[in-house]
Nucleic acid binder design. Structure first.
Ligand SMILES: [Mn+2]
Ligand SMILES: [Mn+2]
Ligand SMILES: [Zn+2]
Ligand SMILES: [Zn+2]
Lengths: 143, 143
DNA sequence: TATTTAATGAGATTGATTCTCAATATCAAT
DNA sequence: ATTGATATTGAGAATCAATCTCATTAAATA
């Protein structure tokens, strides 16, 4: 399914489905979650697949363009991406201790945001909400 | 008032109130809003005040530590900071066209977040909510 | 003022990302 | 399958924010 989307996207833009792109795509898909370009690059390398960093970056841009993945935010370790195809929109809680990311969704928050936009004459396109703190596990560790 | 906080902070840490720090502090204060290190550095330079980039970065770290400013997020143009002393917590709408930043606050959203954290056994420390889209002005331009 | 120690600036370094460009792979027409 | 047109690749250079190094300078205070 994702492949179909990618194929159409590439064809429409006159781009080719090459081995490098295929490899990055597979690996991206295998994450089904959050990742950064460097870790993806290294995992490809480990597997013995030779794809240059440049191609990794270039392919991730394409995957963003066609809506299969999304930039989440910039971090100290580089841009965090997320595979979003088939995932509903959601927001994140981010554990400052272990890095765990908990996904959540609140209809109420979404609705209130829309109301606020209307009030302020702002045309909202998308948003990100990140709550930073400590996950259950890390709270226990501290005790 | 801010000066008093800064002074106490420096004294407690055995740090000195130097010209470079004073200059960065003044300039930071003058923003009363969002800025990045490079723009601050350039504005200092324009004014004929000689402070190195290194000192700008070092001083901004201190101002963060003592709670007068806060990192908002990393952008293509570097880390975005915000002067927060005396500002209540708020979130942002960010115009993708002109860059304008609209600040807003919703008690309801804050409350729901707390509820969600409780549900998910997450200890929330802080959060950021950014709504991206188009401001009133930029919506008009398009028509 | 002299002494001690923190702070500074210039420039090197790091790390993520992008760019360059010659070599290569892909595709479609033959 | 061969050819030709063109998109893609990888290696390494370039860029840019941020940090680090370290010799020199400035603050604090006795
Ligand atoms: Mn997610
Ligand atoms: Mn703000
Ligand atoms: Zn944790
Ligand atoms: Zn605007």
């Amino acid at each position: 399914m994702e492949k179909r989307i990618l194929n159409k996207f590439l064809k429409d833009k006159g781009l080719r489905l090459t081995k490098a792109r295929e490899a990055v795509f597979q690996r991206t898909f295998s994450y089904q979650g959050h990742f950064n370009p460097e870790s993806l690059y290294l995992r490809l390398k480990e597997t013995g697949i030779k794809v240059s960093r440049a191609s990794v970056y270039r392919t991730l841009s394409l995957l963003c363009e066609c809506g299969l993945i999304e930039k989440v935010r910039k971090t100290e370790e580089g841009t965090l991406y997320e595979y979003i195809f088939g995932h509903e929109h959601h927001d994140h809680m981010h554990c400052l201790s272990c890095g765990e990311i908990i996904e959540f969704y609140s209809e109420d928050i979404e609705r209130i945001q829309e109301e606020l936009c209307k009030e302020l004459h702002f045309k909202g396109i998308n948003h990100s909400l990140e709550i930073r703190g400590y996950c259950k596990k890390c709270q226990k560790k501290k005790n």
